[in-house]
Amino acid sequence: MDTSNKRLIQRLMSRIPIKMLRTTLGKWGRLTEVQLKSMNLTQSKWALTEKLIAICEENELEVKHLTELEMIYIIDNPNQGMWHTFQLMDPEDDAQSVELTQFKEQFKSHIRELVRQVSVKMKKHTDEAVWIRIAWGDAFSRPNHLKPTYVVHHLQTPYVFVTSLTAKQKPLLSQALVLSTRHQAIKDANLSGRKLTAIRDLMMRQYQQVFPTKYPSPLTEHNPTVSNPHIGREQAEPAANRLQMACEAFGGGMLPQLQSAVYKLETKFRDQTNKTMTEREEPFKCVVKFASTNLLESLRNCASSGIASTPVTPLLSSIPLKGRNYFVITDNGPGPSSKTDQPQN
């Protein structure tokens, strides 16, 4: 076994937590029952790594087997690294009929036409998602298996989720994807986050949405803080209204875990108390970033607690509504309050 393979095993072993090791290796199925039992999990990571290297040598396992193990682990633990979303545009007539085998063949052949040294591995996950692992090389070097790109695509949907992609690799992947899914173009969907499941749920609207009703039934508040019954009664109605509007804007129940949203504002400064700035022609340029462990829940809480005024501004409700977390905001036309968000590209 050469050094690059040993390094790949070391890298993998450092990523997989001890408590997940046995199940991951079991799923991999490249170790005999005896070999699997011989991996004593009370040993140190270092000792286990040496042991695994020895077993791999004994079983004559190669790179393709090791990358298989990596994929099994990544598919089970996708919430690592930064995931970016792309959207396929203008489907051809036969786009809907692309099935897995065809897509696999097409993608591999297209990407190999673009890059000579590339290693592609694909796996269909149980939830219909196709996982693609790409190790890139160039004219002078063999594919680098230590820095692979991962792509997740649900066939027959326009969404593609990608992690660890460099600017140089982006056009190559885009072209291969467009051709093999029978679309004409692909664009940045301006949504990114650390949790693949969250951005996928947001993109595919897989979270509990709340719709406006004519006679709003007040949603139950989780932890009522008002103690005085008189004050409580007086505040109950507006509070219920705020909660209703907050849930309409951001959704009810558990919300997809998004970490941040960025707004690039290039709008005019308008403030009645400041004439000089209001009369100024140029836009006031600033960048606002919202960050939280669960951004949508924070924003919903802002609206329901009254820190944010209700109804919620379209700027914030656009995050779940449009499934985006990067916006460029400019003034649109001469209207006093009309503003739109335009995609960055």
Binding site: F284, C286, A291, S292, N294, L299
Partner: peptide, 12 residues
């Protein structure tokens, strides 16, 4: 708010 919301406001 819950969870805490951090706002970074950067002006040109």
């Amino acid at each position: 708010v819950v969870p805490p919301l951090q706002v970074t406001y950067t002006v040109n």
